[in-house]
């Protein structure tokens, strides 16, 4: 039986992990390779690196990071952030990433999903969706540019379109829950999960280990992503997995 995946997410800027990493036992809490190995040891099933570099140099550095991570890590990892073209995808995938995550660029030009899927296969193409509930729409609206710009897309129609174009996986972030630490957005996750045939990674809102059980059992997510809860050691991947096993959720 396929296990539910726990996916820590690391924000990388100019080759360094940034934003709230509290690891006193690491030599260098900003080193992506060291952190990746740390999460691997804890039993993380997969990792996501989000490149938040603003400069060209920062992006080039990210490729070096990807190479180094690929050299040490024996679990899959995804790279997202700033991937705007087939060339960008080639760069990180050839450096050793297993998947790329497309967000704003895919909304701007949906054909990019197809180009990536045709060239590398759907299994390499993750479409990241930032969604926020919209009263008027009566559903969730898609935002781009890190949640700053609203689009005309409704979440279910965009998720379906992304899969039709070749997305192999959906990384679904709830903007309503993100940072709130009150649990994943179960309604959103459930709705998208029921609409697509590919795996859905739920993201945004993890505050405690119980939240993971909810998103797997109630919302039937295939994987769950979290950042600060792991970085700040509020819980650990190992602890979450032990808890999930007690709750009868199949994990590695």
């Amino acid at each position: 039986m396929l296990t539910k995946r726990i996916v820590p997410c690391l924000d990388v800027k100019d080759g360094r992990v940034v934003k709230g990493i509290q690891f006193v036992d690491l030599k260098d809490a900003g080193d992506p390779v060291e952190l990746a190995a740390f999460y691997d040891e804890q039993g993380a099933d997969e990792l996501v690196f989000l490149d938040i570099s603003a400069s060209h140099e920062g992006r080039e550095t990210m490729v070096e990071v990807v190479e180094e991570v690929a050299g040490t890590l024996a679990i899959p990892f995804t790279v997202g952030g700033g991937i705007n073209s087939l060339e960008d995808m080639k760069r990180v995938l050839r450096a050793g990433a297993d998947k790329v995550s497309l967000n704003t660029a895919a909304i701007k030009r949906p054909e990019l999903i197809k180009e990536g899927a045709d060239f590398f296969g759907s299994q390499c193409i993750v479409v990241a969706i930032d969604a926020k509930y919209d009263e008027e729409l009566g559903s969730w609206r898609i935002y781009t540019h890190g949640g700053r710009e609203a689009t005309d897309w409704e979440v279910i129609s965009w998720a379906k379109e992304a899969v039709r174009l070749g997305a192999g996986e959906i990384l679904l972030t709830s903007m309503d829950q993100d940072g709130a630490k009150t649990g994943f957005d179960l309604a959103l996750t459930k709705a998208v999960n029921a609409a697509v045939t590919v795996p859905v990674i739920a993201s945004g809102g993890a505050g405690k280990k119980e939240d993971f059980a909810d998103v797997f059992v109630d919302a039937k997510a295939d994987a769950a992503l979290a950042a600060s809860i792991f970085h700040y050691k509020e819980t650990s991947v190992a602890e979450v997995k032990t808890y999930l096993k007690e709750k009868g959720v199949t994990v590695r």
């Binding site: 039986m1 296990t3 099933d45 759907s122 299994q123 192999g168 795996p199 295939d222 994987a223």
Partner: peptide, 19 residues
């Protein structure tokens, strides 16, 4: 096939960790 004999849907690709 993407669905079981009972018509229940399952995800394709088979993606992730399995025993």
């Amino acid at each position: 096939v993407g669905h079981t004999a009972n018509g229940e849907m399952y995800k394709v690709p088979h993606m992730g960790w399995n025993k």
